[in-house]
Design a protein around this nucleic acid. Structure first.
Lengths: 344, 344
DNA sequence: GCCGCTTACGAAAACGGTTTCGTGTTAATA
DNA sequence: TATTAACACGAAACCGTTTTCGTAAGCGGC
């Protein structure tokens, strides 16, 4: 087992000082040509690599960024993460991931853990519980310490920092508008129970589209499901008892499940009922029929967040009056079989 | 912007030495009660937290583990990752993720990056390209330096280290056996193009089951698809031209796609053709019909890998003759609609 | 022979902790 | 009263780098 070699070892072995070795390896002008060659050859031979931790301590920069997300087994977050990882890696950063599991406490613990020197900045999407509690002191502490923070998707107005979101309201509005344009009139909405602000915004867009086209807003046609638990009975009852010719769902899981239910009830998709979901993932592409879906461009979102963060991290030089941006990524509707054709 | 406070600040402010502060905060017996209280109160007031980097440098332990996986937008790896993250977090470790993107070079670069002090150990699944090249020098270097390594799923015999795999051959064998037991006789296989050893093992199990039941082995009934690109024409031709009454697929994406194709060709699932896939993910649960699938217990796998790694990391005390284990997780078949009923 | 300049290198501080080993003060003991 | 042990704290080394500053040696010029 050959242990890692350090500057000290090289110095001792070659009978020079540590500083000389350090400079020689950086090809400093200060060191004589022959000494440099001798040291560099030795270092190469023994495969010397500087210790990241020591360098981090010295420069007070870790080249690590912390990512805290509510869930990792979730297509959208995974996609965003890929965008972050790709960009960060290209810039020489590593990514430490913590999963808050939608829990406020875990989010707080993870942030505190990482904030003590482990990372140069945070990228995160808020846990559902955090949004519910509306308690953002852990975020405030971090930003007050001068640690850059970028929020994405699940954001809050309470914190001043960079943000990346999609135009949820608008995207839902446009999706419903499309349904109306194709002749649908009784449009249902399947959303989550309350607290997620993205769902709320999509719901707003849905209402706005109905209103603007003079369609009645029927609370009856809105189904609220628990976020991550299954509640098939509730859905089945909803689709059996209500009549509709189109459905907008705030995620693709709700959409695919709902499609399955109505199909079992003997309805045809899209002939009897059209479907549009959010999050254009693998489910949308592989369901039968394939699902029209609002693509949130997760990878772009991740890349954007990483770009903003690293920009802030590297321009730490007395930032001229903190200026924060909110970038809005335009979601786009990907049309597939579940909305084919026009009624009438 | 209140900067992070250090021992030095506290020492200066309270007019004691740094060592006294350090000891007082650890509640050392050495320090007088009143001094301790004064220091602790001050530290609490200013929210002192020790700097992780400094501690890492001192103990030569980072409390970070490095995870290198080929892909993150992939249900199985994501699930394993969740298992790793949960266990690691519970043990006070953070996880640094790097995505090799199936590329040998990226795998090498990421490993070298992390191996220079950033992590205490590695958990990884080999990139496809690495398995193709059969070049594991980067892994050897790491293990020779005494850095613990645990391989999972995509492993190699070339490297001596802890491993976690599932019984791929056996699982495929049992799946096919089940199909045969329910009366199926012409069983096709949809697998990947060559190099992935997990696919190879599943293929072996498929063949063994056929042989043991005296069924003819028909190379015609084996479809090889490129790993991550779409090739729908090839699949369509395959299912149009061949006749079969059951299909085993080495992953759930192939399975769901194939089901879609045969359904469009007018066949009924499971009446005409039964399907079994590998990787029991969201697709299996939500496809129509729902897909019978081999559950690889990714989360358990991740947890197991993390447990083995941390065990090695923390018992670094002159490990009594390196002893490495290979744990085998038993996959289990989850039966759903796509294999319902018996033929005859 | 002395001054001053360049060249080539080393000493030491610093990053933020932990830990070992003194050491001065006080109180108990002979 | 002198010895000693307990107590409470500080100095300094160390982890592995980087970087500033100091300086010895060598040399040319006067």
């Amino acid at each position: 087992m050959k242990r890692k070699i350090t500057l000290k070892h090289i110095a001792r072995e070659l009978d020079v000082s540590i500083s000389t070795v350090s400079k020689a390896l950086k090809n400093s002008e200060e060191i004589g040509q022959d000494t440099k060659e001798k040291i560099q050859a030795f270092a190469r031979l023994y495969n010397y690599r500087p210790n990241n931790i020591a360098i981090s301590l010295k420069n007070k920069k870790t080249k690590n960024i912390g990512v805290i997300i509510p869930d990792i087994v979730h297509h959208f977050f995974t996609t965003v993460f890929r965008g972050i990882e790709k960009y960060a890696n290209a810039k020489g950063y590593n990514v430490i991931v913590c999963v808050s599991d939608e829990s406020f406490d875990k989010e707080v613990i993870n942030m505190e853990m990482l904030a003590n020197g482990s990372i140069d900045g945070f990228i995160m999407a808020l846990a559902g519980e955090t949004q519910l509690k509306n308690d953002y002191n852990h975020l405030k502490e971090v930003t007050e310490q001068g640690i850059p923070l970028v929020l994405f998707d699940r954001v809050t107005d309470e914190i001043h920092c960079d943000k990346v979101i999609i135009n949820d309201e608008e995207a839902a509005y446009l999706a419903v508008k499309k349904l109306i344009a194709s002749g649908r009139r009784e449009i249902a909405l399947v959303t989550t129970e309350g607290y997620l602000n993205v769902s709320a915004k999509r719901t707003e867009g849905y209402y706005r589209a109905l209103r603007e086209h003079g369609l009645p807003v029927q609370p009856d046609l809105v189904l609220q499901l628990p976020y991550q638990k299954e509640d098939d009975k509730k859905s089945e009852a909803f689709f059996r008892e209500r009549s509709m010719d189109a459905v907008l769902c705030v995620n693709e899981i709700f959409a695919v499940k709902s499609m399955g239910i109505v199909q079992r009830l003997g309805k045809r998709v899209p002939e009897d009922i059209a479907f549009i979901g959010f999050t254009d993932g693998i489910l949308s592409r592989l369901s039968t029929p394939t699902l029209s879906s609002v693509d949130q461009h997760g990878e772009l979102m991740g890349e954007t967040a990483a770009r903003m963060l690293i920009e802030k991290v590297e321009n730490d030089h007395e930032q001229e009056e903190e200026s924060y941006e909110t970038k809005i990524i335009s979601a786009t509707l990907v049309e597939r079989e579940s909305t084919l054709g026009t009624v009438n």
